[in-house]
């Protein structure tokens, strides 16, 4: 197991290196340049030249790449020209926001999706099953932006139950944020009002972001449970005289979790692209929104740094999924 993990982590090196080259070339292939984006109307050839020298963009590509790589290895991704702050500092502010949002969304998706899928399978062929199948289809196809504005309109504008946008109310501005995870910060500092404020701000974005993964997880769970219920070993468990509840808990769900955990691993990419839309729709200051803005501003440093870190996370999460296989299925462990 340990060797497997080490091998997979070592594999991360060539993957990230290849990705860094591709990313580096891709951002430079975007039409326009950072200087132009920065200066906009005021751009003159001299000013552009000045800025390019300041940013080192006048150097040959391989020199630029070497400088980037050298710094990246020390976890320094340069300065964001959007915010004039070091990219790493922006990461420290924004990754917690997105992780908080993503984890909440994933929790919603898992905690609702798995039971829904399970009960649909158990009531296979009944109207409840059909309802869940059609509802999940709607969940998968509904556009994120549309859903976001609908939810804001109903729950924030009309009913006024939940905040409209952002991560916290203006009156919470002086609240301390040691980690950047607002919910965690409020718990650590024992600040009740800040906690409820942070949670309330999470509800609508998290529900929006959770919709597609929830629908997919419900479908996968349903299919997986239907498969497992037909397995001979479930019949054996019944023949032993186990109660239906124990059979579900010990013999069905554990097996059905294998395809579900694969899906959750694969959802990470979906979650990130969903986060861009969701964060933009709710003015939620996270990774997605920042990266989305980095493209029009030709913010090379931000794009390179953030996307590399996201890719590394993606690989690590899928490594966790593979490890979970071994934990779930002994036949995988032996190999």
């Amino acid at each position: 197991m340990l060797r497997f993990i080490v091998r997979r982590l070592l594999l991360l090196i060539p993957v990230l290196w290849g990705l860094s080259v591709a990313l580096f070339l891709w951002v430079r292939a975007l039409p326009g340049s950072p200087a132009q984006a920065l200066l906009g109307e005021r751009a003159t050839p001299e000013k552009i030249r000045q800025i390019e020298i300041a940013l080192g963009l006048d150097q040959p590509l391989y020199v630029q790449y070497w400088r980037f790589l050298e710094k990246a290895l020390r976890f320094d991704f340069g300065t964001s020209i959007q915010s004039s702050r070091p990219v790493v500092e922006e990461m420290g502010r924004r990754f917690p926001a997105t992780i908080e949002l993503g984890v909440t969304a994933l929790l919603i998706a898992v905690l609702i999706g798995i039971p829904v899928g399970y009960f649909a399978a158990r009531r296979h062929g009944t109207w409840l099953d059909q309802l869940s199948v059609s509802a999940s289809l709607v969940g998968i196809t509904i556009p994120v932006f549309f859903l976001a504005y609908m939810l804001r309109y109903v729950f924030a504008n009309q009913l006024g139950w939940l905040p409209n946008t952002g991560r916290q109310e203006a009156r919470m501005l002086d609240v301390e944020h040691p980690t950047g995870f607002y919910v965690l910060d409020a718990i650590v500092t024992g600040n009740g009002p800040a906690l409820s404020d942070a949670l309330l701000h999470l509800v609508l974005p998290a529900v929006t972001l959770a919709t597609i993964p929830l629908a997919i997880i419900a479908r996968i769970t349903r299919a997986a449970v239907l498969d497992v219920l037909n397995e001979d070993y479930v019949r054996t468990a019944e023949a032993k005289g186990l109660t239906a509840r124990t059979i579900t808990r010990r013999h069905v769900l554990r097996n059905a979790m294998l395809p579900v955990s694969t899906t959750i691993g694969l959802q990470f990419g979906l979650l990130m692209s969903g986060a861009i839309l969701t964060e933009t729709a709710f003015a939620f200051e996270g990774v997605g929104k920042f990266v989305a803005q980095a493209i029009p501003s030709r913010d090379y440093a931000t794009l390179q740094g953030f996307i590399l870190v996201i890719a590394a996370l993606f690989v690590l999460i899928n490594l966790l999924v593979d490890i979970s296989y071994g934990l779930i299925d002994p036949r995988v462990r032996v190999r």
């Binding site: 397995e231 001979d232 054996t236």
Partner: peptide, 9 residues
């Protein structure tokens, strides 16, 4: 079939 009738995990 004893292989499929026993729980693999």
């Amino acid at each position: 079939d004893p292989l499929s009738s026993m729980h693999p995990y």
